[in-house]
Design a protein around this nucleic acid. Structure first.
Length: 783
DNA sequence: CCCAGCCTGGTTTTT
DNA sequence: CCAGGCTGGG
């Protein structure tokens, strides 16, 4: 697959034998259509690329081709949707054209490339160069704060709802003023009793500006404004980006396409690659209309259709085709392959979710032995992140190594966000979400009442909170509080002064020490505290790595000024997702959502939780459009598989503590049974009880009795211990842990939950009798 | 102002 | 079931 000329131990010898001026003959690696798409470098090009059709190859070779034709790499702009896709493409291009040229390419996600440009051009828009990027959490907190300050009903104006309406408006480039006159939106808000969204929208924008902050949508919207309102800037970037490439074009939304149209300009050298059948991001504003409009906007469009699939077996390709053909709204096409027929699609129907986990783990174990696969050749895909836990347990029990991608990202952890807030504040003291987060953490006697008072003043004077803090002496507050505020302000100022002379790493270490954050976590000897401390160290390591990289780049390219400031670090890091952190794993089964599996491929794919209401999700089952998007999602999942595909469903599943019974997914039922082979479990649920189902029932009974007893006699030891066994062997490990609370010292039999507080089932003696107790507890490591 | 404990409301998918 | 918000005692 890959150009493996320089593979293996004989690298040096090969290098000597291969003259450096004889490039890798990439054109011969392509089929006819692919090659035509690569060679058509001028004018508008659209490539409709089915799954596994060599899309990435075409994109990378096209870039390599442009460079070989003498185009300067820094004149090429290549936009993707994930950092991972960008990184991988860069690596592959590097192999063909060399590192130096690859480094100069403008290649990245829409958000990161635009953030980079906006950082350079910030002053045009009245933003500071070091603007903050608000993540979703910051955004929602800000909205909640505004709703509260303005005395809106927080039961109606929920942050989630308000945010999604604002975000939708932004993605369609509807300003607050336009929002007010948009009858359709107004009508919808009216029905939901949210008729003042437009006010919140305007306020929200104002507050972001005041804080020198942009949210994810602003990175796109402001990029558009920059190009639309400043002709000289537009010209600069039109001139710079002579050739533009866009991957996953079906995922672009209205603003993104508007920006691209501006950038393309008269040169018209634009190439988009996409597949309407793989459009799975409508919920964040993506529209396949962009694909349809593209033809209208660029009449002399060259269209290439890549329909041959090189990835999967015939069976998998056929099943994929039969699934997607149920969608009415699509551009007709059929993918085909000359690959081998392969084995049938396996279908696991399990009784419960725990059974499902067990059967999947068993199947992986067996497949691995029988067909000599390695762990990393397996992927388990699911609809929601929450599904990973049960599977994890099953894999652990089977002794199969795994890695979970996605979910809560490193940078979303509390301790990391706290530290980051100090860093953000140092770079941009107007960043109010950061300020609110740490002004009283670690505790320094600036309570909620004080902050609220200052926030109201700030709002009245229409000034950033920071500016109020600077002049705190003029305000009516307790002397002690004022003192605390002044020392806080001085702390941040001190950091800011050091910014010029210290590297991001040195400064971050210094900040961690001086704020007492490191000490605070170091003092916390609980299990969670320890891992928080380790996470913080990992953050420092990542900053060090960033700085070291930049220093190296600086040495390589002494003429370019490489930005290794804290601000640059923050910008880079705030656009990372959970998919981007952590090492690539060997020997580990990969667990991720279907969404994050897009663009990837694996020899063996397990798609789990194929039940109505889960996949398709209950929310999507109401409208045809949503259901079709879910079906595309299933299509994407199925086409990740190269050799083996296993579908699985559980007839009953624990959800919010209760059991939910489901039918097997309508999507699975759409598959011709001739392609399916039912394995493991029993096809029907009635009358069938599995081991794990029994265990589950038993533990549920125990839990119920505990709950009842707890209600009757709160805070008293209850339920005799003699019959109780932890249902999960993994929990036994926590026996090395004791709990301290007001009842004394006990042994933890089982713990549940994550984060700060955990539910613990504790055994201890009371009045000479063994008892168990269910409590939230802090866990301490003994010895 | 702080903290522990209780209560309630929200759970698709992601840059 | 869980995290964050709220409350009431210190």
């Amino acid at each position: 697959m890959q150009p493996s000329l320089f593979d293996g131990e004989n690298e040096d010898i090969l290098n000597e034998q291969t003259p450096p001026d004889k490039p890798f003959d990439y054109l011969n690696e392509l089929n006819k259509v692919q090659r035509a798409a690569v060679e058509q470098t001028e004018g508008p090009v659209m490539i409709i690329a089915g799954p596994g059709s060599g899309k990435t190859r075409v994109l990378t070779y096209r870039i390599a081709h442009l460079i070989n034709l003498g185009k300067a790499p820094y004149n090429l702009l290549s936009l993707t949707f994930t950092n991972k896709a960008a990184r991988e493409m860069k690596e592959r291009i590097e192999q063909i054209v060399g590192g130096e040229a690859a480094q100069q390419l403008w290649m990245g996600t829409f958000h990161s490339i635009f953030a980079r440009i906006l950082r350079i051009e910030a002053q045009h828009l009245g933003y500071p160069t070091n603007f903050t990027i608000y993540d979703t959490e910051d955004t929602k907190k800000l909205i909640a704060a505004i709703v509260k300050e303005r005395g809106f009903n927080s039961d109606i104006y929920k942050p989630n709802v308000v945010y999604s309406r604002i975000s939708n408006a932004k993605n369609k480039m509807i300003s607050p003023a336009a929002y007010q006159t948009n009858l359709q939106l107004k009508a919808r808000d009216e029905i939901d009793g949210l008729n003042r969204i437009e006010d919140l929208y305007a306020l929200y924008i104002k507050r972001c500006r005041r804080a020198g902050a942009m949210d994810f949508d602003d990175l796109l919207l402001n990029m558009y404004y920059l190009l639309a309102k400043f002709p000289e800037v537009l010209q600069k970037y039109q001139h710079k980006f002579r050739y533009i490439l866009i991957d996953e074009f079906q995922d672009t939304n209205f603003v993104q396409y508007a920006i691209v149209k501006k950038l393309v300009g008269e040169g018209r050298n634009i190439c988009v690659v996409g597949d309407d059948a793989q459009s799975i991001y409508a919920f964040r504003g993506a529209t396949i209309r962009n694909i349809l409009n593209f033809e209208k906007d660029y009449p002399k469009l060259n269209i290439y259709k890549l329909e041959q699939n090189y990835r999967s077996t015939k069976n998998i390709v056929q099943v994929a085709n039969t699934i997607i053909k149920n969608n009415k709204n699509q551009i007709a096409k059929q993918i085909w392959t000359s690959n081998q027929e392969g084995q049938k699609i396996n279908l696991i129907k399990a009784a419960t979710d725990t059974d499902e986990g067990k059967l999947v783990a068993d199947s992986i174990y067996e497949t691995r032995l029988r067909h000599h696969f390695k762990n990393e050749e397996f992927a388990i895909l699911y609809r929601t992140n929450a599904q990973s836990r049960i599977i994890e347990e099953a894999l652990r029990r089977r002794g199969i190594g795994y890695k979970v991608y996605g979910g809560l990202s490193f940078f979303q952890r509390k301790e990391i966000k706290d530290m980051m807030a100090y860093l953000r504040l140092t770079v941009n003291p107007h960043d109010e979400e950061a300020l609110r987060r740490v002004i009283n953490y670690p505790k320094r006697g600036i309570g909620k009442a004080t902050i609220d008072k200052i926030a109201i003043t700030a709002d009245k004077m229409d000034k950033p909170i920071w500016d109020i803090l600077l002049k705190i002496n003029g305000f009516k507050l307790a002397t002690r509080t004022k003192k605390s505020i002044i020392s806080f302000v001085n702390l941040i100022r001190n950091f800011k002064q050091r910014q010029a002379k210290e590297s991001a790493y040195e400064l971050a270490k210094y900040i961690g020490r001086l704020t007492g954050l490191v000490q605070e976590l170091h003092n916390d000897k609980t299990v969670e505290g320890l891992s928080r401390f380790e996470n913080l160290e990992e953050l420092f390591n990542s900053i060090k790595e960033f700085v070291d990289n930049k220093v190296r780049e600086n040495l390589e390219k002494p003429n370019d000024r490489v930005d290794d400031s804290l601000g640059a670090y923050l910008q880079e890091v705030s656009l990372l997702t959970s998919m981007d952190t952590g090492e690539e794993s060997a020997e580990q089964v990969k667990l991720m959502t279907v969404h994050s599996a897009k663009g990837l491929e694996f020899p063996c794919v397990y798609i789990i939780g194929l039940e109505d209401k889960l996949f398709p999700s209950a929310r999507s089952m109401k409208s045809v459009q949503d259901l079709e998007e879910e079906r595309r999602l299933f299509y994407v999942a199925v086409t990740r598989a190269k050799e083996k595909l296993v579908l699985s469903a559980a007839m009953s599943r624990r959800k919010f503590g209760a059991i939910q019974y489901s039918d097997i997914s309508r999507f699975v039922q759409e598959i011709d049974p001739n392609y399916l082979k039912i394995v493991g479990g029993k096809p029907t649920f009635s009358g069938y009880k599995s081991d794990s189902y029994d265990a589950f029932k038993k533990s549920e009974n125990i839990r119920n009795s505990i709950k009842n007893a707890k209600n009757q006699q709160q805070k008293k030891p209850i339920a005799p211990i003699k019959d109780f066994k932890p249902s999960n062997p993994a929990d036994i490990q926590v026996n090395s842990v004791v709990v301290h609370n007001r009842f004394g010292k006990g042994t933890v039999l089982s713990i549940d939950g994550r984060g700060d507080r955990r539910m613990a089932i504790i055994a201890f003696e009371h009045a000479g009798e063994k008892r168990i107790l269910v409590r939230y507890a802090k866990l301490m490591i003994v010895g």
